[in-house]
Amino acid sequence: MKLLENKVALVTGASKGIGRSIAQKFAEEGAHVAFTYLSNVEKGQALEQELQALGIKAKGFRSDASDFAAAGQLVDDVVKEFGQLDVLVNNAGVTQDGLLMRMSEEQWDRVININLKSVFNLTKAATRTFMKQRSGSIINLTSVVGLRGNAGQANYAASKAGIIGFTKSVALELGSRGVRSNAIAPGFIETEMTGELDPKVVEEWKAGIPLKRGGTPEDVANCATFLASDLSTYITGQVLQVDGGMLT
């Protein structure tokens, strides 16, 4: 039996990168997958077809996770379409880097709304379903930057640190109902975004990582699969670092 057989998962921001890998891994492990995308319709539709080819039910929803009303409607639509919801992965996120002295209010608000408010929106929307069925796994994507900060990323670091506090609070609130809440803190993960960096910068990053390599989206997806599965039923309120030992 596959690890996520017959579970229904909702993954936000899954058209590329880590979110896409999580959706793919979940489907490979037997989960039915609902996912969101926003700007790239073509990639969203391609992912839906790719997941369906694995023999599970999959559906993409064009939805803005930072919109409170849209998040509520999304969860309602997923439960109606799939009949249940067992796993919520809050992955949607953006960066708008810049030193604090030059950061605009718009840059601050956009990152906080998409990265942090979206986690509140989707979690609140899913809570009623999870509490009613007395089970559920909430997986929030934070970052090592949320644990240690990073110059030029005050908005991003604040949003990711906020996710950690939110995750632990939800674990305390919902634990008695059998609902688990955990976070994953990726380190240097090689994605389309990091592929645009100066190769020298990338090598400097790798040199400072005990495992001497960057992580892959699949590394993060494997961790998410563990937290979504029944292998982790006694784990809640935790932040699992997928960083090759970067913050050790």
Rank of each mutant, 00 (worst) to 15 (best):
M1E: 00
K2P: 11
L3A: 04
E5L: 09
E5C: 00
N6V: 00
N6S: 11
K7Y: 06
A9P: 04
A9S: 12
A9C: 10
V11Y: 01
S15D: 00
S15Q: 01
I18C: 00
G19L: 01
G19M: 04
R20D: 07
S21Q: 08
S21R: 06
Q24K: 05
K25Y: 00
A27Y: 04
E28I: 10
A31Q: 05
A31M: 06
A31F: 04
A31C: 11
V33K: 06
A34H: 03
F35V: 08
Y37G: 05
L38G: 01
S39D: 13
G44M: 08
A46V: 11
Q49R: 13
E50D: 14
L51K: 04
A53S: 15
G55R: 12
I56Y: 04
K57Y: 12
A58L: 09
G60M: 10
G60K: 02
G60L: 04
S63F: 05
D64N: 15
D64L: 11
A65I: 12
S66F: 08
A69P: 00
G72Q: 14
L74M: 13
L74T: 07
D76N: 14
D77A: 15
D77F: 10
V78R: 10
V79D: 09
V79F: 11
F82P: 10
Q84D: 15
N90A: 15
N91L: 14
T95S: 15
Q96A: 15
D97T: 14
G98N: 13
M101T: 12
S104W: 06
E105C: 09
Q107T: 09
W108S: 11
I114H: 02
L116Q: 07
N121V: 08
N121P: 07
L122T: 13
K124Q: 15
T127D: 04
T127P: 01
T129C: 04
F130G: 00
Q133W: 06
R134Q: 15
G136C: 06
N140D: 08
T142S: 15
V144K: 02
V144I: 15
G146D: 01
N150V: 08
A151D: 09
A151M: 12
G152K: 02
Q153H: 08
Q153V: 07
N155P: 01
A157E: 01
A158Q: 05
A158W: 00
A158Y: 03
S159T: 07
A161C: 06
I163K: 01
F166I: 00
K168M: 09
S169L: 10
L172E: 10
E173K: 04
L174P: 02
S176L: 11
V179T: 02
S181W: 05
N182Y: 05
P186R: 08
P186H: 10
G187H: 03
E190Y: 13
E190G: 05
E192T: 02
E192A: 14
T194E: 09
G195Q: 12
L197N: 13
E204L: 13
E204F: 11
W205S: 09
W205Y: 14
K206N: 11
K206C: 09
G208W: 10
I209S: 06
P210G: 10
L211N: 11
L211G: 05
R213T: 12
G214Y: 08
T216C: 06
E218N: 12
A221H: 03
A224K: 05
A224S: 12
F226I: 09
L227T: 07
A228H: 06
D230N: 15
Y234M: 13
Q238W: 03
Q238Y: 02
Q238M: 01
L240Y: 08
Q241V: 11
M246R: 12
